[in-house]
Design a binder for these strands. Structure first.
Lengths: 110, 110
DNA sequence: CCAATGATTAACTGATAGGTTAAATAAATA
DNA sequence: TATTTATTTAACCTATCAGTTAATCATTGG
């Protein structure tokens, strides 16, 4: 199983609405730090710290943009999302899910 | 898409290690509150509050145990886990996942 | 070289979360 | 009814977190 520490890092990173919004934006395409700050109308320092949280916990990675070295591009990393999804699937095994069945929400609930 | 507020409730509930441990325990079978408190060596009041968080956010439900009404059993609710898994899958669509492919971690990472 | 731009770090602040002990509530039992 | 057991609520304390402004670092372009 995924080390508990990793899950903790991932979940506490995603527990913040701004960071979750960042993740959603980045799931469209990589973005610059400033672009992200503007998108959520938080100050650049605030966004910088959110990005640091996401980076140190492995949810995003920094890729210094090619031509202009002042710019920092951020891109999603897959691993933590895979690990979290897997954890959820293990929990959901409680309902006897044959792993992929009952993707349909119209099924029994409890 | 799942309302952002629900995701926030689910994720902030799961961001705490103790509550996550409770979820893992409950994914085996429903338990009494006291049983859970003992399992994580936290005081009953602390566990009570964790359970309230999990309950108000819909991750567990209370099912007053049949014979002894002092006892309260807690049981997992499926909905929030489904919703969270779905959100993750949407994010992971970034990698062109055909929804169920690349369950194999040996695939490309970014 | 100097001014402007993109972003981060530093220092401070207010709000929130989780833990504890003590008191209260509720129900089974002697 | 009084006592014991299971759990929650109340009150309090400390630590952490997210946001802000001001200062710093790095890079580009006049």
């Amino acid at each position: 199983m995924t080390p508990a520490a990793d899950l903790d890092a991932t979940l506490s990173a995603l527990a913040d609405p701004t960071r979750r919004g960042v993740v959603e934006l980045l799931s469209t395409r990589p973005r610059r730090a400033g672009e992200l700050a503007a998108a959520f109308s938080v100050s650049p320092p605030a966004m910088s710290r959110h990005l640091r949280v996401l980076r140190t916990r492995g949810l995003v990675e920094e890729a210094r943009g090619g031509d202009d070295a002042r710019v920092r591009m951020y891109r999603l990393r897959r691993e933590p999302f895979d690990a979290l999804r897997q954890w959820i699937e293990e929990v959901e095994a409680f309902w006897g899910d044959p792993l992929g069945a009952s993707r349909d929400p119209a099924e029994r609930r409890r």
